[in-house]
Design a protein around this nucleic acid. Sequence first.
DNA 1: TTGTATGCGTTATCAA
DNA 2: TTGATAACGCATACAA
Lengths: 333, 333
Amino acid sequence: MKVTIKDVAKEANVATSTVSRVLSNSPKISEKTKENVHEAIKKLNYKPNAIARSLANNKTRILGVVLPEDADDILNNPFFINAMKGMSMYAQKKNYYITYTFSKTQQIERKHLKDIINSNLVDGVILLRVSEDDKNTAYLRSIDFPFVVVGRPDNPEEVLWVNNDNISAMYNVVEKLIKKGHRKIGFVGAIENLNMSKDRFIGYKNALFDNKISYDESIVVHKDEFIENEGQSACNELLQNKDITAIVTTDDLIAFGIMKELKLKNIDNISIVGFNNTPLSAYQNPPLATVDINAYELGYSAAKLLINNLEGKEHAKRHYIVDTEFIERESFI
Amino acid sequence: MKVTIKDVAKEANVATSTVSRVLSNSPKISEKTKENVHEAIKKLNYKPNAIARSLANNKTRILGVVLPEDADDILNNPFFINAMKGMSMYAQKKNYYITYTFSKTQQIERKHLKDIINSNLVDGVILLRVSEDDKNTAYLRSIDFPFVVVGRPDNPEEVLWVNNDNISAMYNVVEKLIKKGHRKIGFVGAIENLNMSKDRFIGYKNALFDNKISYDESIVVHKDEFIENEGQSACNELLQNKDITAIVTTDDLIAFGIMKELKLKNIDNISIVGFNNTPLSAYQNPPLATVDINAYELGYSAAKLLINNLEGKEHAKRHYIVDTEFIERESFI
DNA sequence: TTGTATGCGTTATCAA
DNA sequence: TTGATAACGCATACAA
């Protein structure tokens, strides 16, 4: 039989409320009964029932993570794993559990989000991707449910978020290239409506502008997906422009495709920079220079942000910016 | 305000118990009241509270996954991700949620396991790694808590498990090498006390035996960790033996280390086979032949096994064997 | 400082 | 076929 708070109360000759107070470390309880109760707890090996607790105080200490709809991403993109790991570490530290939903389509993703919230299972939600005019954040805001997004939401003042400074991250990459003497720097991005995509593109343009290099639309390509194929085809578009000397991308997978295509064409004098520092990037030939976005820290901060706000910490921060790091490798020439 | 079963009952002019019966599709309920109640549910947009439900029937529909203690594994080893994905897919299909614990040490892992069980948060547990004389399975059995292991437990009759046939998977690899003419085939494994390691080693020996090749202890190395470094040092040990022509390993990471070392030594006439078909394996130079263990399917089956048994399905299976597949690539010469 | 009583939102038991 | 009510295990308002 499961031992409950009643058993402890009986054993310690106190009321269940007293036991409950001892458990929650209530200040107004005498040292003596405290010890007394602790003894009974130990003797009976009592463990509070998390579910009953949740029902009583309407808090589950479970966080819900919504993994983005494109399930394949999750396998090939360590961003999600690292972010999950970061979240998990902070959550565990604070005695929270994490559950999550995988979904194949956006529609199912919405359904999962609603289910998990309506069932009262989670205290808050973390979104790992945010797009322009994002339906999920809109929904969460409409029902006033606690959540944080990893990425930049449309309305940054009204939403909890953690993010890299993608503008300056890309700005720095482009500026490094310019310092190396590059003037014709191509840009390849994908999924243009992600705010992350937009920011990296802005960083690109800003760096050009600040260095008095005119923006050339003909060496900018926006693709639909973060996959190698897109990189390959983008590469071909860019090569129409003979004098290009460098290409920056918003994702390593795109950069992989570009490198593949350049190799086919026997071109080895174009500088390539990826984004996200995926494990494969170091194994490219030549190894791909890239930007580490510190996914672990993004996840960790996201959990911290959410939990602090759930627990109503005064002056709780409302967002974090996580540093990025340029990883220089041989493709950066 | 949250709408509860009481509100629905009031709206439909029935008792809460009736609403509850409608919800659980109880047979003895008239079509008329059923419709009536459904209408009220829709009108009020009522969603049952999962926590209250859990408390009432002592089932949470949450599964706990214990990720192995070595956190770094989880990042580099897509096995865990794929397995999690498989589990998630089946769980979602059956309206279960999954939560998990990451741990840095075995000790903390045990604590997490106990916490998650004692708090009554999960209905069952999935273990993603099992070793000889496994403490976790022993604990779970001692308290008679539902669980399944991915891998081979010591007492297969008494435990729910899913597994590859690691013996025959490695047997097939070695036999393929023998058919190619190899006679001096080295073996490199790690973490000898994992049953998985043992089985692959047995497969190796059996294949030699059945092909009348004498077992040579001097070309067998057991290392401590599944990392590249161990592969490199193992390689050096094996090369003492000049006439070796092939090396099988129990993990791709080990194989990577071996290939690295061989390249340093300018040796390119030794056949190498990895295990687990990690993404990097295809990107080695030459691409690494390996064995795909179908982690997704392992996870999927594990969840299926656990849920079926939790729900007391009659004749529920007590284990699954998931097929492996040899992935032939250029390192297989 | 402690105890009593009640509520949290369901399901299950027992009667009707 | 339906309703009233206890029970699930804990937290907390109110009393003492």
